[in-house]
């Protein structure tokens, strides 16, 4: 019984550590997926002049996981929500679409502000806006990768060690 309890504490603590390190890894993946989406959006606008609702729908099909759902939902929102401009889209609704993501608050705010600025731009301004956003996301990805490298091992080790620490205390 005692050994079983010790094992459970160890597994729980290690699990928490692994989950935290997993969030860092996933954040990098999701930021990369978001960047891929924006690059595809840039191509859709530049070469096909596809309107935003259709462009989001097309790109959604090419992405995976959270971003696949996010692009799909934004497309549906733009198609059905006829009497709302992009700038007046409800932030809470967009935030809700990212609830399952591993992105942090700053990432979410950046995405929301990017979406809200898409509405009334001509092609040239739209291209500049997208280019700027892609560069910014790339910087975020680089920083997130560094964070991942730094924190991945740290959280895993911390989880395992805190499990051992608790077991030692109780012994």
């Amino acid at each position: 019984m005692r050994i079983l309890g010790m094992m459970m504490v160890f597994i729980a603590c290690s699990g928490i550590g692994i989950t935290y390190s997993y969030i860092y890894k996933k954040r990098v993946e999701q930021l990369c997926e978001w960047k891929k989406g924006i690059v595809l959006l840039k191509n859709e606008i530049n070469y096909s002049l596809t309107p935003l609702p259709e462009a989001f729908e097309i790109i959604g099909r090419k992405l995976e996981g959270v971003m696949n759902r996010f692009f799909d939902e934004i497309a549906a929102l733009l198609k059905t929500n006829n009497n709302k401009t992009m700038s007046s889209l409800d932030e809470k609704v967009i935030k809700k679409l990212l609830i399952d993501s591993c992105l942090n608050e700053k990432d979410r705010k950046t995405i929301i502000s990017f979406i809200k600025n898409l509405g009334l731009l001509d092609k040239e301004s739209q291209m500049n806006n997208l280019e700027l956003h892609i560069n910014y996301i790339q910087q975020e990805i680089d920083a997130a990768k560094k964070d991942e490298e730094k924190n991945n091992k740290l959280f895993k080790t911390l989880g395992i060690l805190s499990g051992i620490f608790i077991i030692v205390i109780f012994i």
Binding site: I45, L52, P53, A55, T85, M86, L118
Partner: peptide, 17 residues
């Protein structure tokens, strides 16, 4: 005017240049 223009262009003015 801006609002109507955004709805007309489906939030994508660039597509109607």
């Amino acid at each position: 005017i801006k609002e109507v223009l955004e709805y007309i262009s489906k939030h994508s003015l660039y597509a109607y240049e």
